[in-house]
Design a protein around this nucleic acid. Structure first.
Lengths: 264, 264
DNA sequence: CAGTGGTCTAGACCACATG
DNA sequence: ATGTGGTCTAGACCACTGG
């Protein structure tokens, strides 16, 4: 009784979703039911039938609404989670993720990367600053032993409060012996460079590769583990060619677009 | 009876796989069984217990081997298909994909992209050459109307016979009125450029973005639909700045690494 | 505590490819 | 005809979150 009541209430709250579910399915042989549900959910989300940030009705209710078993319903939901449109939180519900925006990272080689996005405010948050073992790649670039220490800076970039990019930067201690203090004073890497006498530097190489979010990355970025992501590693050098920064970042794949433009 | 016999035969064929499956599972609360099976399969593949190109035992047999239900087994297999290590062919079996290699695409801006891979032979295959409607983006770049025609060249790149990259190139007809004939004569885009008086050109912009393989792309690349891929679009200009080529390519995400190096 | 998503099983039927 | 992978159901139990 209480179940029926709750069901009716939710249904009344979102008639558009109910209408979407009421349509007849194409034959299973043409396209599996779960993919058809996946399609309809995608439409519902993109057409703001269910707005970003809102919570979807529960799986059992949705399954009933779409006239399928809960398992079948879950397949459709799971694919959307994997692709980044939805995000489940155990014990809480399934939420519509903020509309995936395409970030543009201009990578002009001469300048540091710059984030461009239409509207929305990007904020940067430092997760951790300290010293630790260099990654093998950074050690080689800095010309130090593999187990030597480097300055480590973990940063998180957020769009309107939602995490969107996590990076791990490495700097050679020899070059920036007082990195931490300088950084705390200024709050900017560029300023630390300047205080070390580096007025200008350049991006010498950028690598892009695909992967799947580790548990840690998934937690920080608030996505499901195994979600496809893009890793970007970049190398900055001073004018003499010395490597002064090695950076490795991670994006949810769906929300970034990289642009590499010629210098002109 | 026949079942048992077949099972024993296969098991005898691959004792290493059986050994992998025989180990006790960690508690489900630590890591779900299907993810533990996923892990073991990954090990088996990466350690050549099941070599690239070989076919896995059937799902029902594997499920029995790992002591779980077929559905549970399928979850582990499905994730590997999604990530590119395995590839299922309906009615045939599940196959181990060729070891994902990291392709390096050097993108020096001055030169056309060049494929680098350690060992293995890369071949190029033309799927289609003809004329058709320009994409909106290309039309704008070429300075033509959105419904105007362009030269279209669909190409497939293969590594040791396995499809690895599919691209769709667009060229302005005004600039290359005799493209098809020139191309058939020489078999190279560069030669067509030269015959049109273009001795040198440059890559002015490259964009990288993630996505999920459409049904068509999946078929060409022999991957499952919805598998994560990377799209790369690039623009080539002649020395005067005129756009002479617009290219859009698609890679299985797991098998490519893009390198953008500064000109130096 | 109730409701949520996450996992797992048992069994069924289908579509496809191969011999 | 057989075996393969693909889909779908029914029902169960668990772990987590919130009030």
């Amino acid at each position: 009784m209480a179940d029926l009541l709750a069901g009716d209430l939710i249904k009344a709250e979102n008639p558009a979703l109910a209408a979407l579910a009421a349509k007849a399915y194409a034959p299973r042989s043409v396209r599996p039911i779960w993919l058809q549900i996946y399609d309809r959910l995608a439409d519902a989300i993109r057409q703001d039938v269910v707005p970003p940030g809102s919570r979807l009705p529960g799986e059992v209710y949705l399954a009933d609404l779409f006239g399928v078993n809960r398992i079948t319903m879950r397949r459709a939901l799971a694919l959307h989670q994997n692709e980044g449109l939805l995000q489940a939180r155990k014990g809480v519900g399934i939420f519509v993720r903020p509309r995936p925006r395409r970030f543009l990272i201009r990578n002009d080689m001469q300048f540091a990367e710059s984030l461009l996005v239409d509207g929305g405010s990007i904020s940067s948050k430092n997760l951790w600053l300290g010293r630790g073992k260099a990654s093998p790649e950074a050690a080689q670039l800095f010309g130090i032993a593999p187990d030597e220490q480097v300055i480590l800076l973990h940063r998180l970039r957020q769009l309107d409060g939602a995490p969107i990019y996590v990076s791990r930067k490495e700097f050679p201690i020899l070059r920036f012996p007082d990195f931490e203090n300088r950084y705390h004073e200024s709050g900017s890497v560029r300023a630390v460079f300047r205080s070390a006498g580096i007025e200008s530097y350049r991006r010498s190489e950028t690598r892009v590769m695909g992967g799947f979010a580790s548990k840690e990355e998934a937690e920080i970025l608030e996505i499901s583990p195994q979600t496809p992501v893009q890793y970007v590693t970049s190398i900055n050098r001073d004018v003499s060619g010395q490597v002064i920064e090695f950076n490795r970042g991670c994006w949810p794949m769906a929300s970034v677009e990289l642009v590499f433009a010629a210098a002109d």
